[in-house]
Computed example of a mutant assay.
Amino acid sequence: MASYRGRLNEVCCPQHPDAHLIEDYRAGDQICSECGLVVGDRVIDVGSEWRTFSNEKANSDPSRVGGAENPLLNGSDLSTIIGPGAGGVGFDAFGGSRYQNRRSMSSSDRALINAFREIANMADKINLPKAIVDRANVLFKQVHDGKNLKGRSNDAIASASLYIACRQEGVPRTFKEICAVSKISKKEIGRCFKLILKALETQVDLITTGDFMSRFCSNLGLPASVQKGATHIARKAVDLDIVPGRSPISVAAAAIYMASQASEDKKSQKEIGDIAGVADVTIRQSYKLMYPRARELFPDDFKFFTPVDQLPQL
């Protein structure tokens, strides 16, 4: 009885609580394998709605019907479409279809689906996870329903929504990275970014040099010691106010250049600029500000392959 009481919330045979239950899918019953008692009836079949005839139809799989429910669409994308009539019932006297679909999808849902598809395509190109795609979809939906950015293209709003989603999820991407996978200019994405923040009354955390350091160093193939040194250099340069007014991306790129030049794995300004999305001259300007105080920027445990006094003077 003790084991039976512990399983009151489960469907089991009262006489044989540990017995395996056999499911009769045709009748919707659950039967005890020991005594044959029907312990559950009218069980809902959660299997496929149709059998799969994969050998007969190579290009289609009728194991499921309809698309997945999308809560971001009006009506959760549940709509009714009238199929072709059978026999003469579905046709009028002139042979035309008696019942017609006026509109299978609203223009609002069509715009949302196109935007969601564009966001998914952009995210796939730069390997962003589904959590960021879902957040970007919600942001676009809020802007679309509020009609806050009239006159702006949906592609621009979608690109800005993806940029904001990356910032809010703690894995920021640069405007140039979003622009590279989008059809919208960097200037237009920046405008939509500011308008969305204002319209939704939301905010994003300020980006820092550490947000990009691991990704840039990984793409450059630099070891962990160089990444650690570059992170320390960039943080120290910001704390000492050596690079006032410089963007975190350019400071991170200059720090990577300085750390790599002091190590065995040297990288050129062009290599770093291509990965970071900044021009060579931008890296050079930040590096010139950091070079005079290079000794105090490096961490104490950094292993120099090239001494500080032999670093390039640009």
Rank of each mutant, 00 (worst) to 15 (best):
G47W: 06
V133S: 03
P307N: 03
I275M: 04
M258R: 00
N148M: 07
R135G: 02
E201A: 12
Y4A: 15
A255G: 11
R98Q: 13
V204I: 12
N59R: 14
P17N: 08
D109A: 03
N121V: 14
L195C: 04
M105L: 13
F193V: 00
V43M: 11
S153R: 02
K198W: 08
F305A: 13
D145R: 11
P312G: 01
G245S: 10
S54I: 11
S250H: 01
K186L: 04
R215M: 05
I44L: 10
D239I: 14
H232N: 08
H16V: 06
F53C: 11
C179L: 00
C35E: 10
T282K: 06
D280M: 11
K150F: 05
T174P: 03
E264H: 14
D239G: 03
R284H: 04
A180Q: 07
P307F: 03
K267A: 06
T202W: 08
L139Q: 02
G28D: 07
I81A: 09
S218C: 09
V243T: 15
Q269C: 05
K141Y: 10
R42D: 12
A253C: 09
N55S: 13
L195D: 12
L162M: 04
I22F: 09
G95F: 07
G85L: 08
K236P: 07
C179D: 03
G36S: 08
I126G: 00
S54Q: 12
Y257T: 08
R191G: 00
A27F: 11
N127D: 12
K267Y: 08
T202Y: 04
P129E: 08
C32Q: 02
V43K: 04
E271P: 06
V39G: 04
G95Y: 06
